[in-house]
Measured scan of single mutants.
Amino acid sequence: EDEVKKIVKRLIENGVDDEQIKEIVKRQGVDERIVDKVLKELK
């Protein structure tokens, strides 16, 4: 989960929008619920 957080944070800093972040992270095989949780925490 910490790995996911790092990735998502980097994507947000690069101006990637939420939908794209979800797609990218899902392609890495991460559960969507984890992605949603991380996005909420970082906003």
Rank of each mutant, 00 (worst) to 15 (best):
I34W: 08
I7L: 12
L42G: 05
V35M: 06
K6M: 12
K6Q: 14
Q20P: 02
V30C: 05
Q28E: 09
E41H: 03
K40G: 15
L42V: 14
N14P: 01
K9T: 08
E13C: 05
E23T: 11
D31L: 09
V8K: 00
V35T: 07
R27D: 09
G29W: 03
V16H: 14
E23A: 14
R10L: 12
D17M: 11
D36L: 04
V35D: 00
K43A: 13
N14M: 15
V38D: 00
K40I: 11
E13A: 11
L42H: 06
R33I: 11
V25S: 04
D17Y: 07
D18W: 14
N14K: 15
E23Y: 01
N14H: 12
D18V: 14
G29S: 04
V38W: 08
V38S: 02
K37D: 06
I24C: 04
D36P: 00
I12L: 15
E3G: 09
G29T: 02
K6G: 09
K6R: 15
Q28P: 03
R27N: 13
E3M: 14
E23Q: 12
L11S: 01
E23H: 09
R10P: 04
V30K: 06
V16P: 01
E41V: 02
R10M: 12
E23I: 13
K6D: 10
E32L: 10
L42F: 04
V4H: 01
V16L: 15
E3Y: 12
R10I: 12
K40R: 10
E3S: 11
E19R: 09
I34T: 12
D2R: 08
E13R: 08
V25Q: 04
E32N: 06
V38C: 06
R33L: 13
K9D: 04
V30R: 05
K37C: 05
D31N: 10
K43R: 12
E13F: 07
V8T: 02
I24N: 04
I24G: 02
E32H: 08
E41A: 04
Q20V: 11
K22D: 01
V30L: 13
I12F: 11
E23F: 01
E19A: 14
I24P: 00
L39E: 02
D31C: 04
D17V: 09
E13L: 09
K37L: 07
E13G: 08
D18A: 13
V4N: 01
D18N: 09
G15H: 09
K6H: 10
K22P: 02
K26I: 15
V25E: 01
I7S: 05
G15Y: 05
R10T: 12
R33Y: 13
L42C: 02
K43C: 06
E3Q: 10
K5D: 02
V8W: 00
K37N: 07
E3F: 12
V16C: 05
L42Q: 06
E13T: 08
K26L: 15
V38K: 02
V4Y: 03
E13I: 08
D2T: 09
R10V: 12
N14T: 14
V30D: 01
V35Q: 01
L39N: 01
E32A: 12
V30W: 15
V30G: 08
K43E: 15
G15D: 05
D36Y: 01
K26Y: 04
V38L: 13
V4T: 05
D31I: 06
I7K: 07
K9G: 08
E41L: 02
I34H: 05
V16R: 08
K26A: 12
D2A: 13
E32Q: 11
K9S: 09
E32W: 04
E1R: 07
N14F: 13
N14S: 14
I21D: 00
L39I: 10
V25A: 10
K5Y: 05
G29I: 03
L11F: 05
V30Q: 05
N14Q: 15
I21F: 01
I21P: 00
Q20W: 08
G29R: 03
V25M: 15
N14A: 15
Q20E: 13
Q28I: 14
K43P: 08
K26C: 06
E1F: 14
I34E: 06
K5M: 07
E13V: 07
D31A: 11
E41D: 15
L39D: 01
D36M: 03
V35N: 00
D17S: 15
D2C: 03
D17H: 12
I7Y: 02
L39P: 00
V4I: 13
E1L: 12
K9Q: 13
E13W: 05
R10S: 12
K22S: 04
E13P: 01
V38R: 01
E32R: 07
Q20R: 13
K22F: 10
K5R: 13
I21S: 01
G15T: 02
D36T: 08
E41I: 03
E19C: 05
K26P: 02
K9Y: 02
E19T: 12
L42E: 05
V35A: 07
L39Y: 02
G29D: 04
E19W: 10
E13D: 11
D18K: 09
K26W: 02
E19Q: 12
K43M: 11
L42R: 04
I24A: 06
D2K: 08
G15L: 06
V8D: 00
D2S: 11
L39K: 03
K26F: 03
N14R: 14
K6P: 03
K22Y: 10
K40Y: 04
V8N: 00
V25W: 01
V25L: 15
K26S: 12
I12Y: 14
R27I: 08
L39A: 01
Q28R: 11
K43F: 07
G15F: 06
K26M: 15
K5F: 04
L11D: 00
K5I: 10
L11Q: 01
D18P: 13
I21C: 02
E32K: 07
R27Y: 04
G15S: 05
I21T: 02
E3K: 11
L39S: 01
K22T: 06
K22C: 03
D36N: 08
V4C: 03
E19K: 10
E13Q: 11
R27M: 13
Q20D: 10
V4D: 01
D18Q: 10
D31W: 02
L11T: 00
K26G: 12
V35L: 13
Q28S: 13
E23W: 01
V8A: 04
R27L: 13
V8Y: 00
D2H: 09
K40D: 15
D2Y: 08
D17T: 15
K6L: 10
V38P: 00
E41G: 04
D18C: 06
I21Y: 00
I7M: 10
K26Q: 11
V30S: 04
I21H: 00
E32G: 12
V4F: 05
K9L: 08
E3C: 05
E13M: 10
L11C: 04
D36Q: 05
R27K: 13
K22H: 08
G29M: 04
R33N: 14
V4G: 01
V16T: 09
K22W: 05
K37W: 04
K22V: 11
K5P: 02
L42N: 04
V25C: 06
E3N: 10
D36K: 07
V38H: 03
E19N: 12
D36S: 07
K37T: 07
K40S: 14
N14Y: 12
L39W: 01
V30P: 02
I21W: 01
K43V: 09
E1P: 09
G29H: 05
G15R: 06
V35F: 07
D31M: 06
K43Y: 10
I21Q: 00
V8G: 00
D31P: 13
E19I: 11
E13Y: 07
R10D: 11
N14W: 14
R27W: 04
K9F: 02
D17P: 15
K37R: 12
V16N: 11
V35I: 15
V8H: 00
E32M: 11
N14G: 11
I21K: 00
I7C: 05
K37P: 01
D17L: 12
Q20T: 15
R10Y: 07
V30N: 04
I12K: 11
L39H: 02
E23P: 01
V35H: 00
Q20Y: 09
K22A: 06
V4E: 01
I7R: 08
E13K: 10
K40Q: 14
V25Y: 02
Q20N: 10
I24T: 07
L11R: 00
I34P: 00
R33M: 11
K22N: 03
D17I: 09
D18R: 09
Q20A: 13
D17G: 13
K37M: 08
D2V: 09
K26T: 14
I7P: 00
K26H: 08
E32T: 09
N14V: 10
E19V: 11
G15E: 05
D36F: 01
R10N: 11
V38M: 10
E1T: 11
V25N: 02
G15P: 01
G15A: 05
I34Y: 07
V8F: 00
E1W: 14
I7W: 05
K5V: 10
D31E: 11
K22R: 14
I12E: 02
K5A: 08
L11M: 10
D17C: 06
L42D: 03
I21N: 00
